[in-house]
Design a protein around this nucleic acid. Sequence first.
DNA 1: CCTCTATGGCGAA
DNA 2: TCGCCCTAGAGGC
Length: 276
Amino acid sequence: MPEGHTLFRIARELNSHFAGREVRVCSPQGRFADSAALLDRAQLECAESAGKHLFITFSNGHLVHIHLGLIGRLDFHPLADPVGEVRLRIHDGRTAADLRAATVCELVTEGGRQAVLARLGPDPLQPGADPQPAWDRIRRSDRPVGELLLDQKVLAGVGNVYRAEVLFRNRIHPLRSGKSLTRRQFLQLWDDLVLLMNEGVRLGRIDTVRPEHTPEAMARPPRVDDHGGEVYVYRRNGQECWICGGRIRTEQLAGRNSFWCPRCQRRPRTRQPELG
DNA sequence: CCTCTATGGCGAA
DNA sequence: TCGCCCTAGAGGC
């Protein structure tokens, strides 16, 4: 479930329950037990997301770094016995936050945090984030834009769903090289990511379909998928595009399935020479 | 029971 | 480019 909006929501929810309060911290599963003991009964100062990373600061100076990876999750529920493999639990006697399946859950120093932040591009969810560093990389790159969007050094927080959807919404083929984009096209992508990801934060799911293309507006059946949101192309390969009726395609790009409509998103020109 | 997949990312080769 | 790590749920046999 975790693209940047998910981490942003988790940080916000951690703060709303626990910020400024003493918390109990444990590791029912055991793999974080020693570190958890150092945090137990400390005050949770604040939680912050950066792209797909999460940092939780405690009043005793300890700092936890979490990355959910592909399948990790952090859920909140009324305090009860842990179910399954809970690597980290934070609770206040009423509400428990349970972390499972994360690829990273570790104590880090402030320097460690800075090192993580230093290798992240601008995060569309951070208010006032400057897209220029992302553009500086993209405009010089021969790599496909579909690959660049998933590179966290270029942009932080964008995952496979937002990649597919933002490219569709802006009619850009994922195999176009970064350097073939105009600055205007890039800024449209950025602005759209800011819009979509904030909407993701608001709704708690990735929903990218414009009002005029919703099932109700088009009198079509709602899409059936298990991730909850309405999308144009993500995991709709083989199905018809709702705009043009073309068949949605998929292909591996940056190690992940990329989805696009070959009619709405024109192919890259082959070996397009660099134009200023 | 088994295998596969999933909104990620790392390091070895 | 590949294999691997994390875990759970779905589907096949």
